[in-house]
Amino acid sequence: MLFFALPQSFLQMNTIFVSILIEALPFVLIGVFIAGFIQMFITEDMVARIMPKNKVLSVLFASFVGIFFPSCECGIVPIVRKLAAKGVPLHAGIAFMLTGPIINPVVLFSTYVAFGSTWEMPLYRALGAIVVSVFVGLIIAFFYKGDGLKAFDAGHRHSHESLSIKEKIWETLKHAVDEFFSMGKYLVIGALIAACVQTYVKTSTLLSIGNGKVSSTLVMMALAFILSLCSEADAFIGSSFRSIFSTSSILAFLVFGPMVDIKNLLMMLGTFKTRFVLLVVGSVTLVVFLFSLLI
């Protein structure tokens, strides 16, 4: 019995690792199905017709579209990648990616429940997400030149218009498989890192660092990054810190976590150019921080 030799902590790490994956995989599958669907059924013409030409309007538009798409932070990266390949401008795609996992009904409702059936926290959370995505979207729109995507997808634009519906569905499924294999690896590695950190790092020490307003906000953001919780579950964890942390730092936790955490950082790095990811993560961090200090 080989596994009797393994230390208990390793078994726990492994269990947490598998657990994160089991929870995330259904949502990643939904994500790759939608990505495949976009690939086959959404044309660049459609995107051009719907998406406002004006940079500011397109960022605003994209920031609110997420209300209608129940998605989480690991399912949304492949969707954004496909949207970008279909001609959605990068600033709009990123704005959608940042708000999508937060402002959808499922996540807002779970936040409502977690914070004692009150609307204040979910509203602040949605507001925070929109403020951050608008700022970051505009920073990208006006200060980032370049396409931001890694090369392999940029030129990949099939013309599928001639296919029948049946063929399109078949192609959708094929694309979903390919998408799963190109995104899934980041999810697996991210889940592994998060599980290691959860098992071997004493997060409660982290909590004792955060005393002042600034440090407690930074601590909560770091915690959101490390824990890599699904945006549907993080509100419950966030609310448990109410006794020791201020509302504003918990807000930072709730807004930052779904935008940047270990597993979706890896997914972004696999999709976008490294410099671009640094720009996005850097500006998200800054805006979330400032926003939560003002609240």
Partner: peptide
Amino acid sequence: AGLMIPEAALDTSVAKNRG
């Protein structure tokens, strides 16, 4: 890892990490 390594219930070592 899921099929072959036995699952382990969380225990006090995790509890100590989390508070």
